[in-house]
């Protein structure tokens, strides 16, 4: 999919430039953009380095784990089908906490761990369980408190206030998470009524 979009952007550009008799623009755009991309990452590198370092401290101190403790009641509500002290609950909590803090590198392994635990409770090995769908709804709708990379990019581009978009981001991401959870609930209900979705977990 991305293959096609990327190709279309470039071929579309070459075509339009060629038809309008200024095909040399393409050469210039390619060379300049490639150089700008690397310069941009160099500007952004300091911020991402700082943030990943900070997140290491959050992990080591057990802050991610404490945050997980705070969210336990919410998870009980969202995943009524999971046994209270099942390891899957712990893994889900840790994954959500890491996402919330913007520790993307930690969120993915924890998410995979959660899937593994959820699969143990799934009685159809090849079909997603209800709990898995809810878990994926949370992960694909993004629950971020601090959009770290965006703040970094804005700072690197010389923004007067790189963090000014945190408020709008939290609003938008809350909306998308709410929509995801509601839809997940609705789809599950519909599936049950048709008698097809009562699989497990």
């Amino acid at each position: 999919m991305l293959n096609i979009i990327w190709l279309l952007l470039i071929l579309g550009g070459v075509l339009v430039a060629g038809l309008s008799g200024q095909v040399e623009v393409v050469t210039d755009a390619a060379m300049t953009s490639a150089r700008l991309a690397v310069e941009f990452v160099l500007g952004y590198m300091g911020i991402i380095t700082f943030w990943v370092g900070l997140m290491k401290v959050a992990e080591e101190s057990g802050l991610v784990r404490s945050l997980a403790g705070l969210m336990r009641p919410v998870v009980g509500l969202l995943f009524p089908s999971l046994p209270r002290d099942h390891p899957a609950v712990g893994a889900i909590l840790m994954n959500l906490s890491a996402n919330l803090l913007g520790v993307g590198s930690a969120a993915t392994p924890l998410g995979l761990k959660a899937m593994e635990e959820l699969q143990k409770l799934n009685d159809d090995r090849e079909t997603a369980s209800d709990a898995m769908c809810t878990f994926l709804a949370l992960n694909t709708s993004s629950v971020t408190l601090i959009p770290v990379s965006v703040i970094g990019i804005r700072a690197a581009a010389g923004s007067a206030d790189p963090a000014e978009i945190v408020g709008t981001t939290i609003f938008a991401t809350s909306c998308s998470t709410l929509v995801a959870l509601s839809l997940d609930y609705l789809f599950r209900r519909l599936g049950q009524r048709r008698g097809g979705g009562s699989r497990c977990s």
Binding site: E126, A128, A137, N139, T140, S141, A180, D184, F187
Partner: peptide, 20 residues
Amino acid sequence: YFGSVGIRRSRHALAVGLLA
């Protein structure tokens, strides 16, 4: 996530993710 545990039928998960 689904690939890691061998799930082939993702039910409504894709629709939910994209609508989100």
